[in-house]
Amino acid sequence: MTEYKLVVVGAGGVGKSALTIQLIQNHFVDEYDPTIEDSYRKQVVIDGETCLLDILDTAGQEEYSAMRDQYMRTGEGFLCVFAINNTKSFEDIHHYREQIKRVKDSEDVPMVLVGNKCDLPSRTVDTKQAQDLARSYGIPFIETSAKTRQGVDDAFYTLVREIRKHKEKMSKDGKKKKKKSKTKCVIM
Rank of each mutant, 00 (worst) to 15 (best):
D38Y: 04
D38I: 01
A18I: 07
T2L: 09
E3G: 14
L56F: 07
V44R: 13
I46R: 10
P34C: 04
K16S: 11
D47Y: 06
K42L: 09
V8R: 01
D33E: 05
I55S: 06
Q43G: 12
K16N: 06
G10L: 01
S17T: 05
I46E: 08
G12E: 15
I36P: 00
G60M: 02
T20F: 01
E49V: 11
G13F: 12
V29T: 06
Q43A: 11
E49N: 11
G15N: 00
V9N: 06
Q43F: 07
L56R: 14
K5V: 04
L6R: 02
G60W: 02
K5C: 06
G15S: 01
T50C: 10
L52A: 15
G10I: 01
T2R: 13
T35R: 00
N26S: 14
E62R: 06
G60A: 03
D54I: 07
E37M: 15
L23P: 02
L52I: 14
D57V: 02
T50F: 08
I21R: 04
T58N: 03
T58D: 00
G48S: 10
D47H: 09
I24Y: 15
E63Q: 08
I24R: 10
D30T: 09
Y4W: 08
Q25V: 15
L53W: 08
I55W: 04
I21A: 07
D30R: 09
V9M: 12
A18G: 13
L19Q: 13
Y40A: 02
L19N: 14
S17H: 00
Y4R: 13
G48Y: 08
G12W: 09
A18V: 09
Q43S: 11
I21T: 08
I55Q: 04
V44E: 11
G12V: 08
G60C: 04
K42I: 10
V45P: 12
E3Q: 12
D33N: 04
E3C: 11
D54L: 07
D38W: 00
Q25E: 07
K16F: 00
V29M: 12
C51P: 13
I36L: 04
L6G: 03
L56S: 11
D47W: 05
T58L: 03
K42P: 07
V44P: 09
G13T: 12
G60P: 03
I46S: 11
F28Q: 00
S39I: 05
Y64I: 04
P34Q: 04
R41T: 08
R41N: 08
D54E: 15
D54T: 15
V45S: 13
K5L: 02
F28S: 03
V14D: 09
G60L: 02
Y32K: 00
V7Y: 07
G15A: 02
Q61V: 09
E37K: 15
D54W: 06
G13S: 11
Q22C: 06
A11I: 14
I24N: 07
S17A: 00
L23Q: 15
G10W: 01
L53C: 14
